[in-house]
Design a protein around this nucleic acid. Sequence first.
DNA 1: ATAATACGGTAACGTACCTTACCATTATAA
DNA 2: TTATAATGGTAAGGTACGTTACCGTATTAT
Lengths: 213, 213
Amino acid sequence: MKDVYMSVSLGNREKRREEILQAASEVFFEAGYKGASIDAVIEKVGGSKRAIYSYFGSKKELFAAIVTELSNRALAALEPDELGGHDVQAVLTDFGQRVLEVVMSPTTLALYRAVVAEGTRFPELAEVFFNNGPGRASVRLTEVLEQFKHKGQIEVQDCQLAAEYFIGMLRSDRHLRTTMGLQEPPGEMERNQMVQQAVKIFLDGCKTHRNKA
Amino acid sequence: MKDVYMSVSLGNREKRREEILQAASEVFFEAGYKGASIDAVIEKVGGSKRAIYSYFGSKKELFAAIVTELSNRALAALEPDELGGHDVQAVLTDFGQRVLEVVMSPTTLALYRAVVAEGTRFPELAEVFFNNGPGRASVRLTEVLEQFKHKGQIEVQDCQLAAEYFIGMLRSDRHLRTTMGLQEPPGEMERNQMVQQAVKIFLDGCKTHRNKA
DNA sequence: ATAATACGGTAACGTACCTTACCATTATAA
DNA sequence: TTATAATGGTAAGGTACGTTACCGTATTAT
């Protein structure tokens, strides 16, 4: 009996915590850290402030929980990096599509806004977000590029810089506009076009070549 | 006498307005829109709240004035686009250095943070910032690329996309880290390296070429 | 069934802050 | 010099919000 009650109790507790976190993230993402109020969270999820303060200790910790836990989930979508192909172009295309999908997802965009806004006041959160998201991606791509470099398929001075540049191309102004709410995130078709162009420039460059390899 | 008094009075008024704007921008950039208080501005610049409300009508308008006026100034540094060279590489390098200098300047970074943070709540400001800054840059670069394309010096499908990608490379993860306060802005030497690599990849690509043009 | 315990809701405390009404002080014109 | 207008400072109104104290309720073990 005890076990059952315990597990049910814990399950509910977990579930409730999750509900609060979800509602809170919506409020924080919409209003910003300072603009968000505990009352608004309660209005969304029901219950009382007392609950929030028992699950999370303070507004600050609630925000921290949102950023760290949502960052971890966003990371997950980028983690299963098989990338086992042998063709540079195919690997880059696949990787690019995945990056773009993650980066342009509403949750990631909201997280990005929040972290940029509060990064200077919550440096630990900025680090968590960066290491889980963009950092992880560029580290992984750097490794991949190193491999191709050793195999002689690409020529590049600094693989890390190159990796960051490839990802930077993908982000580009489109990400900026989307972040600022000036444009909707691209759909799958558009994302594919973006990736294709990026891969092409990244591999072949723009300069006119008389003798193609 | 009247003229003198008038001009002095107006000059002071302009000067005072500028002082308030300066102090206010520091406060807003440090604390964020919601976190900034008129009292904090007064503590920095002296005088009384009454003054702020007579120069600007409200907190919102004060913020709007900061974003629009500082955006305009940031633009100025990117405006004198001679770019008259005939060598693609030289033109891109020059352009890249200027972009990077502007983009990584403390003021631009602070503006960027503020606009990303509040963009969804102040869409007009996001538009002003974008059109004065990043938008202007990519429009200008697009024109330049079109020229080189017609001259046959570069091959590229979509010049606008290419332009955005070049600028995206320059921004890259470094801009992200700097924006979030995880890293200091690059110095001139580092910026030059960044530009150099970006130009190289943008023009030549990374793929190994057996027959160089 | 009853005592003990944890959980959740209400209400209040204290603070911070935008905004404005009111007053003093200074500048301007006759 | 004196009347008038405008500018700048003080203080208060009104609201919003993070946090916690207090109390009722439900849950658990004897």
